[in-house]
Nucleic acid binder design. Structure first.
Lengths: 107, 107
DNA sequence: TAAAATTACTACGACAGACATAGTACGATA
DNA sequence: TATCGTACTATGTCTGTCGTAGTAATTTTA
């Protein structure tokens, strides 16, 4: 039983999937999403940063400052164990949604 | 280029896919969704009827009364040409979303 | 035959994620 | 020195979903 409120919550999953590889920060995440989607998906800045806040509030990520010398300091995000679990659950949910949608969409 | 605001708008598509076969009404649509999803998706009544209103306001469906003798009269919905076009567009969009999501979800 | 379940809705309000708009701040490049 | 790229924050709006509740008629069952 899933809710209909789907992809809408999948930006968090997308971000977590990238943090799974390595800790990262806003701009890099944004670029990776654009690249990996072949330019088909460009996440909005406000959407991205509000996802970061939500992720951290839920304990799915932890943030820390990079040690860049000079320049604006970056906030890096690292996925937590709780975040990994959540990511797996969302992947499962995504597969279910695809299965559910199948009878309703044409080729 | 898609928006992140996805499945959330896909109830309309699901409903249209069923109206493509034949005109139908609330309860029947609801049952068909439950059946075709193998019980994995049960649409909420309020979600369903607000989708019906939206669909009609957008010109994707037309409604008419059934000719049941006695009993509460049903509102039937029929898909329009505009609705068919919209349905096709949403199917295409759905395929794109699946493609976009692929690199971010595990098996 | 009375009660409960099913069918067929409408109204209202809350919620959350996405996003438009705008602004701040710094460094590097032209 | 002006623009572009990087790195954000704040605020408010929009929309689809859904919780809750109520109405009303018909059908089933106890």
């Amino acid at each position: 039983m899933i809710s209909s409120d789907v992809i809408r919550g999948y930006n968090d999953t997308i971000i977590l999937s990238l943090l799974l590889e390595q800790p990262s920060y806003g701009y890099e995440i944004s670029k990776r999403i654009r690249e990996l989607s072949g330019g088909d998906y460009i996440i909005k800045e406000t959407t991205l940063y509000s996802a970061f806040n939500r992720l951290e509030q839920n304990g799915y990520t932890e943030s820390f400052y990079g040690n860049e010398t000079g320049g604006k300091r970056r906030t890096y995000y690292r996925i937590t164990e709780k975040g990994r679990t959540y990511y797996q659950e969302k992947c499962d949910e995504w597969h279910l949604i695809q299965k559910i949608m199948k009878p309703f969409v044409q080729f």
